[in-house]
Amino acid sequence: MTLLDIFSYGFMVRALIAGILIGLSGAFLGSFLVLKRFAMIGQGLAHVAFGAVAIGLLLGDQPLFIAMPIVVVVSILILKLSEKTSVHGDAAIGLAATVAMALGTLLASVDGGFQTELNSYLFGSILTVQQTDIWLSILLFGSVAGFGLMYYYDLFSMTYDPVFAEVSTIRVKRLNLILAIFTGMTVVIGIQLLGTILISSFIIFPTIIAMQFHQGFLKTLIIALSFALATVLAGIMTSFVYDLPTGSTIVLLNALIFGFTYSVKQLRGGLT
């Protein structure tokens, strides 16, 4: 089998398109979330998505359409809670994640009919990516790209120095809200491919790999997007050729690259 054979399979083409679009969206959002030290919102929302998918499976056969608004609402709630000084961001994420996981497990055990299907959302599968997921990925990528082009400088300013940004009339809270909503959407659309356990790697890995190159913000963002694209392509193809789980392959590929770039940085005191 050659690599070109991959493109003769419809499900592989769908997985590649969805993977690239979700990977680029996650890497873009992750550049701001990681540097704001709010990256764990991706992991937390993935757990929330597990509970939300359980509700979706209980109510019908299109669980992601039910999970989407639930995860988006919870992402807003996490943000609002973390803005209160009495509940820190990581605690707010932990609260939402554990409640949602508990709810998902409880619903599955009470109903019993969808336990197996629910478990398939834990690790995802390229076989399950449908045409609808492609459209959702295009919608997500288009929205995130438009948002990024329009507000790049405001996002950078508020990530670097939120107090200065707020004094400079940048609407920091509104931008944070949009970031949280897009992160929720990325997680829900991405769990089909990577599953709830691994989806946050799309948000975290590209940025921490790019940071090892010691560049300015724009170059770091471009490097993160490039690595997101490369690891999604290589991960999906490798998993197909060697019959490996796609999500795990992508995550471990990222981990290898991170380990390599980090080691080189330590040895050379910066790659450039």
Binding site: L35, M150, Y151, Y152, Y153, D154, F156, S157, Y160, D161, F164, A165, S168, T169, I170, A210, M211, H214, Q215, G216, F217, L218, K219, T220
Partner: peptide
């Protein structure tokens, strides 16, 4: 990851209207 140039430019861009 931010250069001196990137940081200083945010001072002017914050007040720019529309497509910054």
């Amino acid at each position: 990851p931010a250069t001196v140039k990137e940081v200083i430019l945010t001072g002017a861009l914050a007040y720019q209207k529309g497509f910054k």
